[in-house]
């Protein structure tokens, strides 16, 4: 994570409110990693995560006049990002067709609102867990999430059935999630 002194950041936010775009670039650099991690908790697709984070920063720039400098900046930014996430799911409804039924059901059920620290800690833990994944698993994850290949294409590439690839990915994600949780629990404990 990019470390920018707190006073520098506060000054950058203040200058941004006066229309200074160079200062706003400092703000974007300072907060982008935390916002990406936060958005990634609810959106799996990398391109979508980046688009949502970008939209959130653009909307935040437009709305800087409404930001109260007496309040912390990050919660205000997160609220904007949540709106962008909701908009993303709305926009995706037609494209995702019946998958949107599950999206809607998930949005309708209560979920814990993870803190930014949870998200960034989880990302750090997950990266350490990724390093422990065997080579074949890493290749699979790299194709799916690094190269953004569809499951069908991965299956053809690896000469496996799509269902087998899909289930392997599911197991890998569950193992990674469990690994990250263990690491987080260990740190908290």
């Amino acid at each position: 994570m990019m470390t920018i002194p707190e006073d520098t950041l506060l000054a950058a936010i203040a200058r941004s409110r006066s229309g200074d775009r160079e200062a706003y670039a400092v703000v974007v650099v300072a907060f982008q990693a935390r916002l990406r991690a936060q958005v990634a908790l609810t959106v799996a697709d990398r391109e979508a995560i980046l688009a949502i984070v970008q939209d959130a920063f653009i909307d935040a720039w437009r709305g800087l006049a409404s930001y109260d400098p007496g309040q912390p900046f990050l919660p205000w930014l997160r609220a904007i990002a949540r709106t962008c996430i909701a908009k993303h799911f709305r926009d995706q409804r037609a494209q995702r067709r019946h998958l949107a039924l599950v999206d809607t059901a998930l949005l309708a059920t209560p979920a814990e609102d993870s803190s930014v620290e949870d998200a960034t800690d989880r990302l750090a833990a997950l990266r350490r867990c990724l390093a422990e994944v065997p080579a074949a698993g890493r290749e699979l994850l790299s194709l799916r999430f690094g190269q953004a290949w569809q499951v069908k294409r991965i299956a053809e590439h690896l000469h496996k059935s799509a269902n087998a690839v899909s289930m392997s990915l599911l197991r890998l994600k569950e193992e990674l999630g469990a690994c990250a949780e263990r690491r987080l629990q260990g740190r908290r404990g």
């Binding site: 982008q32 908790l41 697709d45 990398r46 980046l50 690094g146 990674l176």
Partner: peptide, 21 residues
């Protein structure tokens, strides 16, 4: 699982903070 997938995606993310800015 969505959260894990999203965070794994970020682990392969080539876009730098400066690019985003």
């Amino acid at each position: 699982l969505v959260a894990t997938a999203g965070l794994v995606s970020l682990s392969f993310d080539p876009v730098s903070a400066e690019d985003l800015a």
